[in-house]
Amino acid sequence: MTALSIKNLKKTYNNGFVALKGLDLDVQRGDFFALLGPNGAGKSTLIGIISSLVNKTSGLVSIFGHDLDKDNVAAKTCIGVVPQEVNFNQFETSMSVVMNQAGYYGIPRKQALLRTEQCLRQMELWDKRDVVSRRLSGGMKRRLMIARAMVHSPRLLILDEPTAGVDIEIRRSMWEMMQEVNKQGTTIILTTHYLEEAESLCRNIAIINNGQIIEKSAMSSLLSRLHTDHFVLDIARPLSVAPVIEGYDIVLNADTVLDVAVPKSHGLNRLFQALSEQHIEVQSLRNKSNRLEQLFLDLVQ
């Protein structure tokens, strides 16, 4: 069953700008799905239409089989949205922000209190429940928006750049939270500019550019299209110039760090053999995590 089905979706703004040009997209139930695209590609418009914040020009959107036009209440009940920017009442407490949202979904007060506690605890905000929301840190505000979006137990959670501007530690903990939510059965659509994030979390991916989907596939099959892998090698003794090895592009990044582009046809064994012949001892090796970035740039340029 598809969690989200979009057919021939078009959006033209009043100023004549065509944001979506007949977009088709299906997201399967239980998926952790990445929606990527450069700024102005149409991601926010697409999410705006799915979450009823933007009026579409034409096309069909259905959520778990409920048409957004004809079966609006059922469709909306299935969705939770975490927007890019803070959009809660900053004069209310964290508890009120989540409780109000539960009320808008028609959840009776007793049940709403229980769900609010669960969601705030899951987002590690329970001890901040009585804090006026504007006093929360940036990371807490983002987690509060996730708690708010989950209070009615949505089957589809849309996260629009949820980790933008938060530090690495918080980002990692938010990744764990998102993975946990997905494991519990919630379908997640994630937009992000951190391609490492998409690569680590998402199973399927769509890339949108100029109002159209230009690529949609499993993350693994997209990454397998890369003909070159990039590695960082830490070497034992400092070098003054990068070694020259035929078939490999090697850059001396620091005197003991080499960036190496390894064509899949050549592999790593030949590289190590050649380095060994030049008496260069490799101490450690790690993958440079920009694989998706490279593909992304190839696709949108």
Partner: peptide, 16 residues
């Protein structure tokens, strides 16, 4: 203020 602070979106995404 609800429009300005954008928490009108809380109402628009919900089935109200």
């Amino acid at each position: 203020s609800t429009k300005f602070q954008r928490h009108i979106e809380e109402l628009l995404v919900a089935p109200v």
